[in-house]
Design a protein around this nucleic acid. Structure first.
Lengths: 168, 168
DNA sequence: ATACAATAGTTGCCGAAGCAGACATTGATG
DNA sequence: CATCAATGTCTGCTTCGGCAACTATTGTAT
């Protein structure tokens, strides 16, 4: 007999029902497809500039001060450790990022954007913002705000509870 | 001079602004991270049953009648052609799916779920639904409905317009 | 009937991501 | 001081998805 739990307590809101469940209604599926579509479009924008979406996002995170080290990037971008290392290899090779061992904690490699890196962020940000605006053009201000809020709420739920049943 | 267009017309709703834009506000970023998190959790659920999330989703699509052929699956799941072929190899090898050349159109391969495939869908659906419910427990009925609606709206926008700037 | 485009499926190739293991370093504990 | 867990980074291995090329088949146009 399965116990329906989700981290802290019992499930009260039964949004989905086994009888009526349909794949196209699943939030997971919607996220998967919309993310895939959006990523493809984003790559199409960045590709002509010789940079991938994740690479640019890494530069952006650095530019925003959300990350100073590789570990920071991993956490901030929800990205694999090894993948980040290899990505930084490429970004360093292309002269967008510099790596320097920290003197306080010699495990840490401090990351810094070069002028070229800053420029790449600044150059592509308008394109990216514009593309997002174009995509969301059919959304009212309220809808846009609500979507952003709900996605953030979902993200918070994912980080705190995760999906129930995984530990059963 | 860049023209701000998005498929059919000029952008009117400037949800994002280059000056105030921040990565954590970007819908693309939110989708990326929440999808990654959710996928990871889903895999954790399916892994003990020796099946991946995409594999199970394929079985589900077949079970729902959303797909009869490999091409159908590609479109329905927004998945690569070759990847689907190889996935079907595995599913067939494990006895979840049968492939049979169509006699009407001998290019197509008709897919069918085996009893084991049906059983796998039926067995894991409750777990999946329950996990989703647990995750969305903090969402009110209205919030849940709105999130679903907005994601579907986003998906529609992606499929019709795509991201502006890609063709520029 | 022939030629050509379009579609369905398969395969090889490449790049990227996830995972595990290794190494160095730090901090805490005995 | 010795030990050990924890953290940060890097590397090898494996898997998987996207892309392109190829074959086979169908439909269409000349």
């Amino acid at each position: 007999m399965r116990q329906i739990t989700a981290g802290q307590g019992t499930v009260t809101n039964q949004h989905y029902n086994v009888k009526t469940f349909h794949s196209t209604n699943s939030v997971g599926y919607l996220l998967k497809v919309s993310h895939a579509q959006m990523l493809a479009r984003a790559e199409a924008i960045f590709a002509p500039n010789g940079i991938s979406f994740v690479q640019w996002m890494a530069l952006l995170k650095l530019s925003e001060g959300q990350a100073q080290t590789a570990s920071d990037l991993c956490r901030a971008m929800c990205h694999d450790n090894g993948a980040v290392t290899r990505m930084l290899d490429q970004l360093e090779e292309r002269g967008y990022v510099t790596r320097q061992r920290s003197v306080q904690d010699r495990r840490v490699v401090e990351l810094a954007l070069t002028a070229a890196g800053e420029q790449q962020v600044a150059a592509l940000k308008p394109q990216f913002v514009e593309a997002l605006n174009g995509l969301m053009d059919g959304f009212s201000k309220a809808e846009f705000a609500e979507l952003t809020r709900l996605l953030n709420k979902l993200l918070l739920a994912l980080q705190t509870k995760g999906l129930a049943g995984a530990e059963g």
